[in-house]
Write a protein that binds this DNA or RNA. Structure first.
Lengths: 147, 147
DNA sequence: ACTATCCTAATTATTTTGGTCAACAATGGA
DNA sequence: TCCATTGTTGACCAAAATAATTAGGATAGT
């Protein structure tokens, strides 16, 4: 039950993006630098998000990427689904035909419930929420210096 | 967020084991046959469970494995933790020192909450519960033939 | 002697984590 | 207008790590 680096880096990249000044494109190079991931890898991660229409890319000089929708309309569930292909912990949930035991398998039912729980959780968290959390954390971190 | 085959096969093996007549050892060979897994692979999966004391093995002729504790005292959380090493979706939760951003990272907080949710769910399901579910499913499957 | 687990190693497959390069698009300046 | 610069896109490739699987002999109990 590990989250792939795709999902982790991708989420961080989006969180970084949403925290930049709005209405102007943010360069992947800058996101990569701030988040400490390779630019090339980040490009790989970003591609499905562009295809899915979560972010838009502006090519050429002064280019970059920006959110295509308001941050409060982008859930973590959607992000991870795009980055990892799906949210299911076992593929027999999406594709029952692959396993002859699917219909009679009690473990499958349990994994299915688990997915539902995870999904509900991730569905309820938007990019905006994440940005808010980060802002609060930053503020809390600041005060540490005055102690 | 995929479950490894270790976790999947291992869980199925334990569920198979708990459904056999109690008080006599069940041979791995039989579990492997019923569950469609290679005996060698199953031995690998089983080893950490023996080490952890969830199941006990009896060597020699008429040997096999049996549960070392009552099935209602073995949770899915424990099983998966043993089979996969941990329950955490990201390693920075268990080892914050590995990542310099750990303290200030909002995504980490979210993954941590997610782990808590998953853990609560898996903690609440025991092998006994699983066996019960399977029994009900089997019964339901049977009735189909009479329709 | 037989049977079944145990142990160690080797092999194969898959995923992760990138790198290289050429093409394409927009901008700004000459 | 034309061209150099900046920057993204996409295809292809590859090393490294991890996971999955297979194999064979050692060991222990009946």
């Amino acid at each position: 039950m590990k989250l792939s680096t795709r999902a982790r880096y991708g989420t961080r990249a989006l969180l970084d993006l949403v925290r930049q000044p709005p209405n102007e494109p943010v360069q992947l190079k800058e996101i990569a630098r701030r988040q400490g991931v390779s630019l090339h890898y980040l490009e790989h991660l970003i591609t499905p998000l562009i295809t899915a229409g979560i972010i838009r890319s502006i090519r050429g000089a002064r280019g970059g990427v920006k959110l295509a929708r308001p941050a409060e309309q982008i859930s973590l569930a959607e992000i991870i689904r795009l980055l990892e292909g799906s949210l299911t912990p076992v593929e027999c949930i999406d594709k029952p035909d692959n396993c002859p035991r699917a219909a009679a398998c009690a473990t499958r039912d349990v994994w299915s419930e688990m997915q539902q729980i995870i999904q509900n959780f991730l569905e309820g968290i938007t990019l905006r929420d994440m940005a808010e959390r980060q802002k609060n954390k930053d503020a809390a971190g600041q005060t540490m210096y005055y102690v």
